[in-house]
Each structure stands twice: as structure tokens, then as C-alpha cells.
Computed example of a mutant assay.
Amino acid sequence: MRPKKVPMRKCVGCQEMFPKKTLIRVVRTPEGNVIVDPTGKANGRGAYLCGRSECFAQARKKKALERALSVAIPDEVYQELEEKWVGKTDA
């Protein structure tokens, strides 16, 4: 029996590949809203962050999330990411 394939995604901050389950997903919904998606199943265009604080700072400085989602990211989303998610994952 073959081992199950683990889906990999690239972090927009550091450009490294990680297993999808370990990353933080940020989604631009079909309505144009930007939300943090802890389930990884929300409809819309997604971009991933690995959760390291230096990677988050680099992604914010270079506007990597804005480029990946083709929309301006509100400050509330960055604050939510920083308070709840960044630095809390094992990536």
C-alpha cells in the first residue's frame, strides 16, 4: 500500500514549502472580504503563512499577501494574524 500524499503549500513570506495543515490560510472571499481561515476550507482565493513572526513581518513589509490575493489587506486582518496566529504554530 502506498503512503498517503501530504498536500504542500508555499508560504508567501519565506517562500518555503510546508504541509498544508501546519500553515495559516488567509482568504479573499468571492464577495471581496479578507478573512483568516482556520479550517482551510473557506471558499475563495487563499494564501498561506508559516506562522513565524519574522516571516509574518517580512510578508507584511513586502505586501506579499496583498499581491497573492490581489486586494488591499485591512489592518484588522494583520492585527488578528499577529495576535492569534503568528508565533503559535510549530512550522
Rank of each mutant, 00 (worst) to 15 (best):
E66F: 05
P74F: 05
P38M: 11
C14T: 07
V12G: 03
I24M: 06
Y78S: 03
T22S: 11
I73M: 15
A59K: 07
G32A: 10
K41D: 01
C11L: 03
I35P: 00
V26I: 14
P74C: 02
A72M: 11
G13I: 05
R52C: 00
A59S: 13
E80N: 14
G13P: 00
V12Q: 00
P30G: 09
K10R: 10
G32H: 05
T22L: 08
S70K: 13
A68T: 07
A59R: 04
D90T: 14
P19F: 08
C50R: 12
E76A: 12
K61W: 01
K4D: 02
C50T: 09
R45T: 15
A72Y: 05
V36G: 13
I35N: 05
R52P: 00
G40D: 00
N43D: 15
F18S: 00
P7L: 09
N43V: 02
R9P: 02
S70V: 08
K4M: 07
F18A: 04
C14I: 06
Y78I: 02
M8S: 00
V26Q: 07
G40Q: 06
L81V: 06
G51Q: 11
N33K: 15
M17A: 08
T89Y: 09
K88V: 12
K41I: 04
K63P: 01
P30N: 08
E76V: 13
K62E: 15
G46V: 11
K21Q: 13
A42P: 04
